[in-house]
Design a protein around this nucleic acid. Structure first.
Length: 221
DNA sequence: ATATCGATTATCT
DNA sequence: GATAATCGATATG
């Protein structure tokens, strides 16, 4: 992926239609790659936090044993069963939040988990939220590579963001399209699950340095 | 009221 | 590569 050219203004972002999300999670996951997650800064007059989506996973709904929706429509999972395009945020391992967007028409569960982003703007605020210091390019993936990390960088919590409308720029959290097309998309098994671990439902941009997990081509030994 | 289980990360060796 | 940390949601009694 080419780095953004200096002195070039970013293309304008326009929101995604709710219909975009009213489809199967696999289709939504694949097409979400290259889109931009936007967070309005909590600091007045500060620029938005933005980052390009480079890795996601599809969770299929009640018939998918690895999906939270497999437990049925409970208070925790109700957003997944509601209308498409809304944030499902949950807390995991006592430490971390994870962000999903609801898919499928209302009544059917299904979602896409955000696993990694390539930061575009507001990097300093992200670093503060993550509690790290940026000393060079090598530190950038620590910002948003991983589902828990990206939530911390964007200050995403269940209280603040569960149920937020991700199709509306009026939300403090939403998804924009700048016309960028994701190239080199590959599919692998999902990460960190024990059930249905063989299904290939993880979508990522091949070779992107912000993708989470071990590098795919570490080079010859 | 209590026990179990993670859609993870940081920090070791 | 292995593992400790950590706690909310859920199931069960």
């Amino acid at each position: 992926m080419p780095a953004s050219a200096p002195h070039q203004r970013p293309a304008p972002l326009h929101p995604l239609a709710r219909e975009f999300f009213a489809r199967g999670p696999r289709r939504v996951a694949r097409e979400l790659l290259g889109k931009v997650l936007v967070r309005r800064s909590r600091i007045p007059n500060s620029p938005d936090l933005t980052a390009r989506i480079v890795e996601v996973e599809a969770y299929l709904g009640e018939q998918d044993p690895a999906a939270h929706a497999a437990a049925g429509n409970t208070p925790r999972t109700s957003v997944l069963f509601g209308p498409p395009g809304y944030a499902y945020v949950y807390f995991i391992y006592g430490n971390h939040y994870c962000l999903n967007v609801s898919c499928e028409p209302e009544g059917r569960a299904g979602g896409v988990l955000f696993r990694a982003l390539e930061p575009l703007s507001g990097l300093e605020e992200m670093a503060v939220s993550r509690g790290i210091e940026l000393r060079g390019d090598k530190d950038l993936p620590k910002l948003t590579s991983g589902p828990g990390r990206l939530c911390e960088a964007f200050s995403i919590t269940r209280n603040r963001d569960n149920g937020a409308d991700l199709t509306s720029p009026a939300s403090s959290l939403w998804i924009g399209d700048d016309g960028g097309r994701a190239r080199g998309v590959i599919v692998t098994p999902r990460i960190g699950i024990t059930k249905a671990a063989d299904r290939s439902l993880r979508y990522l941009i091949s070779g992107n340095r912000f993708v989470s997990g071990p590098k795919q081509n570490p080079g010859p030994k």
